[in-house]
């Protein structure tokens, strides 16, 4: 997880306010009553399984789709009522980079800058800046159709940067890339996040965990979590579980553990592989790390602690737990 380093003054500002967003395609409701706020100077992750409504939400924010209900305010501009002003605040890279393959990156980026209304004297500077950040200068005169997928993605990100938007929205920016390209694109997103607000959507949990300060989890068109990464992990881990193997008899080990303040439950975990040892699952309150106390309590009884590790819910487990809850709620609503 990255650490935020933006000033408090800019962080207080809400760049995007999504209120009660609903989008219905024919009979299918893609997103329903989705609300969240995006603050300045962070990397936001929109996480959800396939079909959760991530792309629909992003397309509505970017002005490519109109909502059935609800509003999206971007820097105070309503995307439906003041689309031109609202879109000037955003750079958007859809899931498939919208490239004209008969152009070179230089020609394409110049065209996008013109289309975004960048003034003539700034076009060259902004295009060069975007190409420098995305490392495209070496291929600027090659036709886009001849570029690798990774470079095409860079061209897509470069076009999103033009016009100096306050927010860049990237829909599944690493899909279909090889591991090397994924690493490069993630590094690029991290660099962008140091300067402006970035929203990325992904169903790759490790990507969100690695890049984002804040995560919004969507499941079946509903927001099931909207928290800073650290807070989300803390909220989802109301108690800490320790797994430990001790050279002791089970009753003795239980007695010692029960004597340590903060220990809630002790359970034996199957048969221990080594003779004379016992493996236990110990749950404690999450506020305090009891590993030191437990170690010294065991040592006082001359029980040797062979191993002790703290087990926390990974983002993957949090995600699965939240999306399962989302599905359950929806099922209950339907019933």
């Amino acid at each position: 997880m990255r650490g935020g380093s933006k000033s408090i003054q800019t962080e207080d500002k809400h760049l995007i306010e999504v209120q009660n967003l609903t989008k219905v395609y024919g009979q299918k409701t893609a997103v329903e009553n989705v609300s969240f706020k995006i603050r300045n100077g962070r990397i936001y992750g929109l996480l959800g399984p396939n079909g959760a409504g991530k792309s629909t939400t992003m397309n509505i924010i970017a002005g490519c789709l109109s909502p059935t209900e609800g509003t999206v305010l971007i820097n105070g501009y309503d995307i439906c009522d003041q689309p031109i002003e609202a879109k000037r605040q955003i750079g958007y890279l859809p899931e498939l980079p919208p490239l004209f393959t008969d152009m070179t990156p230089l020609e394409y980026l110049t065209f996008v800058a013109e289309a975004k209304g960048v003034t003539d004297e700034l076009i060259d500077r902004q295009v060069k800046e975007a190409m420098t950040v995305t490392d495209l200068l070496g291929v600027k005169d090659r036709l886009i159709r001849n570029l690798s997928k990774g470079f095409r993605q860079r061209v897509g990100i470069a076009q999103a940067m033009l016009g100096k938007p306050d927010i860049i929205i990237l829909d599944e920016p690493t899909v279909g890339l090889d591991p090397q390209q994924i690493t490069e694109i993630r590094a690029l997103i991290r660099r962008l996040g140091e300067k402006i607000t970035v929203i990325i959507s992904s169903h790759i949990l490790s990507e969100i965990a690695e890049l984002c300060d804040h995560v919004i989890i969507l499941s079946e068109g509903h927001v099931v979590a909207d928290d800073d990464m650290a807070e989300l992990e803390a909220r989802m881990n109301p108690e800490t579980t320790l797994r430990m193997t001790v050279k002791a008899d089970e009753d003795g080990a239980r007695r010692v553990l029960k004597s340590v303040e903060g220990v809630r439950t002790v359970t034996k975990e199957g048969e221990s592989a080594e003779e004379g040892t016992v493996t236990l699952q110990v749950t404690t309150t999450s506020e305090t790390d009891l590993r030191d106390e437990i170690f010294f309590a065991m040592a006082a009884e001359r029980y040797a602690v062979i191993s002790m590790e703290q087990q926390e819910q990974s983002l993957e487990e949090i995600f699965l737990s939240l999306t399962a809850k989302g599905s359950k709620h929806k099922k209950e609503d339907n019933d």
Binding site: A62, C64, P94, P98, K116, G163
Partner: peptide, 14 residues
């Protein structure tokens, strides 16, 4: 066909 229509919709253009 190339999905560039979505790109035009995302630009600050009428």
């Amino acid at each position: 066909r190339n999905r560039t229509d979505m790109f035009y919709l995302s630009l600050p253009l009428k």
